[in-house]
């Protein structure tokens, strides 16, 4: 049974109309975070995305939320989302069962500058669930390894039990020309890695700042101090990119909720060059 086939074809759909996708699997990442694999109708443009973009996921009768795509952009048959259950809609999303239907709109928003980063090293700085929208960029680099110089993934989490994609992360660290370092705010006795904020990892990074593109996603406070620190360490501000979070209700610039200064985070972002964000990031309650 494929109800998804009854969804109007993309060309006839309004931008506000979701396509019905089948939930293929749900995997528990941590105590509160789950990764969902969705199967959209074959060949539907909803599945064609660039690293850093997001979709709107919809549970009828419950609501709709922007969720970053966290899977491999070159695997078109499935769309992967890593969702932290923190509210009603996210709870409903992560408690769906395989075979259930979830509505998807998208993909929306700007992408990580994968093309512009070719020939350079890429420094990924992720905090918490912020690793999810960066994972497609990592997959892209690993698939096109020759196009990029070094890959460094720095990841800060609350505690060891909150870290995402642990096995995969450890594997990245084993690859040539690749560093993957994780740090947590609070470690327990069994944690043998770094403890401290993510910027404390910068001293361990081996790369040429001028030839490096940084991609940041995490809590805004973390991105503020991390981008300042990266600039201090010599990465040109136009080579620092941030993925911003605001209340996005429509994803297409109609609802007005996600405005941040002159930008609509949904359509002008979520990925912005630091040069665009810098004048606004430090303004309180903008």
């Amino acid at each position: 049974m494929s109800l998804a086939l009854e969804t109007p074809a993309a060309a006839e759909r309004s931008v506000m109309e979701p396509v019905a996708a089948r939930l293929a699997s749900v995997a528990k990442e941590t105590h509160d975070t789950f990764t969902l694999n969705l199967e959209p109708p074959e060949g539907d443009p909803v599945a064609v995305f660039q690293p850093g973009q997001f979709s709107m996921l919809y549970v009828p009768g419950v609501g709709e939320l922007p969720i970053s795509i966290s899977g491999d952009p070159e695997r078109r048959e499935q769309l992967t989302y890593t969702i932290r259950s923190v509210g009603q809609v996210t709870y409903q999303l992560v408690t769906r069962r395989p075979g259930d239907t979830i509505g998807i709109r998208g993909p929306f928003g700007t992408a990580w500058p994968m093309k512009e980063s070719r020939g350079k090293s890429v420094l990924i700085v992720a905090g918490g669930i912020g690793l999810a929208p960066l994972r497609p960029a990592i997959y892209h680099i690993l698939r096109h390894r020759g196009d990029y110089n070094r890959l460094v993934v720095l990841y800060g989490g609350r505690s060891p039990r909150d870290l995402l994609y642990k096995k995969e992360f450890a594997a990245w660290g084993m690859l040539p020309d690749t560093q993957a370092l994780a740090t947590v705010d609070y470690g327990g006795v069994s944690w043998r890695g770094y403890v401290g904020v993510v910027t404390t990892l910068f001293r361990h990074v081996r790369m040429q700042p001028k030839e490096t593109v940084a991609m940041l996603c995490g809590p805004e406070i973390m991105m503020r101090y991390a981008s300042r620190e990266l600039e201090t360490r010599g990465i040109p501000p136009e080579q620092i990119h941030l993925s911003m979070e605001r209340n996005m209700k429509c994803a297409v610039g109609f609802c007005g909720h996600c405005q941040m200064g002159p930008y609509f985070v949904c359509k002008d972002g979520p990925v912005f060059p630091y040069t665009s964000m810098k004048p606004y990031m430090d303004l309180y309650e903008l």
């Binding site: 109800l3 009854e6 109007p8 109309e17 075979g99 259930d100 239907t101």
Partner: peptide, 18 residues
């Protein structure tokens, strides 16, 4: 109203609502 969905167990379908 911007859309309507009809449930069928865990699945649903989107009803056209132009």
């Amino acid at each position: 109203r911007i859309m309507k969905a009809e449930r069928n167990g865990g699945a649903f379908r989107i009803l056209e609502d132009r």
